[in-house]
Design a protein around this nucleic acid. Structure first.
Lengths: 338, 338
DNA sequence: ATTGGCACTCCGGGACGGTGAGTGCCAACG
DNA sequence: CGTTGGCACTCACCGTCCCGGAGTGCCAAT
């Protein structure tokens, strides 16, 4: 039926508009894409598509541009994620394999993603909540100053300095270290916190132990680790084309508000699913003309963080989705190995 | 003489242009500033100032705007840094005193500076090179995995994971730890590196020691610590007014190139001196229309890092310089206390 | 259902002219 | 000699007008 052709027309409109960023007319459409029909036919189809709210015209007698609903249909039904080329895959692998530690992986990822997509990339640092305690270390720098180190299975290391009211002996520190290790090593964060709060107090040094436990609990429940994000490719905002004040400025402001970015990235999705949020579908109406393409990453099927890009609604969805998915996979694989 | 008045005219032009961002004419000048002369007189002065290359007119028969040279004279001779108000001082103190660690100080500073100046703020993380080694710690996580921790007087903590070829005993680790501590504790980074490379090898475990020393030297000479910078207030780029492509885009790109930013901040200045680099005076010609106001900070008279802002040449120099100096002072004081 | 034809709409860009702010110069003045 | 008022001149800016072109909607014919 001509229903199929209509969808083909929609696809063509999206693709043309994305690449030229100008409203696309019926004549240009039939020329560029080899649909074997006349412009008049396309016009009829366009009228139908507009009736359904999938495309619109900026002003009477200009070409059509897709609406958010049009992009949604395009993303859901008209496109398959085009796989990355082998060269791209190799580039991803080379860049990410060079990372020296967890933070470096995140920073490289965000750069890479920005480069691949030519958009603004956002990568969330791995969240602590699912990882387990690998090691707890106490180091007495001076008799009244203790350093508390927490090493997690995710590879993240948190350290805290702790000033004591009373001096403490090295032997006592060693004892406390042993008891702490027994209580928390191998447990998840949540379990460890429970264990710690029910830990028996050794006589005589309850103050020190309480202080250390406090610091540990604080370090564990510290949401900073999971709230941090890395941002890259802000310069790509320059290609937005749209009005500066309307689109770019709010984004520029948001890029420093990590809470907002985390909300934009949304809930972690596992299993290679890439989420696309188009324009008004998001929670912030100042981003009405921006889309977010994101997915979760993590070892195995466990999502420990999100990553994605944000760009104009008029973006290359297939390519962007492919890049996001590919980077997430490689990052997950690296976390697997670590 | 009328020489003084000419300088007063230059000052007035700079101030007016900075606040209105429009070329300023002779009539408007005498009205807004109470110079008790006629517009015609001012016109003569303007002609003289233009002759000297201090001001220029964008097109014939428009008002005058300052040249880079004009700004330079203004900054050097026509302005005193206006002190911060008490309220501002309190605000700075409150915000910075709330910092929990070194990184937090830097991050708070950069936000603060951006807010105070309405420009893009840059704060360099304290450089390692001048600080001394406070503590070295070795922790054996497993028999073949060591954690190496380096604590510096600046408060920075570097940790590295080290996988060994052969298992190592706890006792040996303790011995090595002792020898390392003796070699480096209290030394500056440079000294410590020298000491480490001439460290005698204990029989039997030369492999382990060599590996640990390698890691330590790497951590010490790691330029990452001194090359890292924090950036804030990128949204203020939106107020640039100038052509987007010409001014904002290169800056936006530079903001992700930390090497470039470090070069922009320039050499550390101590003793409360604030450096101003105006337009073409900088090393990058793509920043011909941007100025950098920067200074060093650090405990005592020792500069351990730079901070500053970058904005359009047309900026409020007295206010910006005051803010930069004030923030640097408070940061230095905090480093003093730590 | 598709197509060719046709009248209509409207954006974008170039031409045009008036207005106003600002300048440079000159002659007069203290 | 520095200052001032006067005057002619220069442009940027803004609103108007006009035209061409791309695109549309509709209709009758196939």
């Amino acid at each position: 039926m001509q229903d199929e052709r209509r969808l083909a027309v929609l696809r063509a409109i999206v693709e043309d508009y994305v690449s030229t960023q100008e409203p696309v007319g019926s004549k240009a459409l039939v020329e560029r894409h080899g649909l074997g029909v006349s412009p008049a036919t396309v016009r009829n189809d366009m009228a139908a598509l507009e009736e359904e709210g999938l495309i619109t015209q900026p002003h009477t007698s200009a070409g059509r541009i897709p609406t958010d609903k049009g992009y949604r249909l395009f993303v859901d039904r008209l496109t398959t994620i085009k796989p990355m080329s082998n060269a791209e895959k190799r580039a991803i692998a080379t860049i990410l394999d060079g990372a020296v530690d967890l933070d470096d992986v995140v920073q490289r990822s965000v750069r890479l993603l920005a480069q691949l997509t030519h958009q603004v990339a956002i990568v969330q640092y791995p969240t602590l909540s699912r990882s387990t305690v690998r090691h707890v270390e106490l180091v007495s720098l001076t008799p009244v100053r203790l350093m508390v180190i927490l090493i997690l299975s995710s590879g993240r290391v948190e350290q805290r300095l702790l000033d004591l009211d009373v001096p403490v002996e090295d032997d006592d520190v060693a004892g406390l270290r042993g008891r702490l290790a027994a209580a928390v090593n191998g447990r998840t964060i949540a379990e460890a916190i429970t264990e710690l709060s029910s830990l028996e107090v050794a006589p005589g040094h309850d103050g020190v132990q309480a202080a250390v436990v406090d610091v540990l609990v604080e370090a564990m429940s510290d949401q900073r680790g999971s709230e941090r994000v890395a941002v890259g490719g802000a310069a790509n905002l320059a290609r937005f084309g749209d009005s500066f004040e309307l689109s770019v400025r709010p984004l520029l402001e948001a890029l420093e508000e990590h809470v907002v970015l985390l909300k934009l990235l949304g809930e972690a999705q596992t299993g290679g699913m890439v989420t696309v949020r188009i324009g008004h579908e998001g929670p912030y109406q100042q981003f009405a003309s921006t889309s977010v393409v994101s997915t979760g990453y993590g070892p195995g099927d466990e999502a420990v963080g999100n990553l994605g890009v944000v760009g104009p609604t008029r973006m290359d969805y297939p390519g962007t989705m492919a890049a996001v998915r590919a980077v997430a996979r490689y990052v997950s694989r690296i976390l697997d190995e670590a």
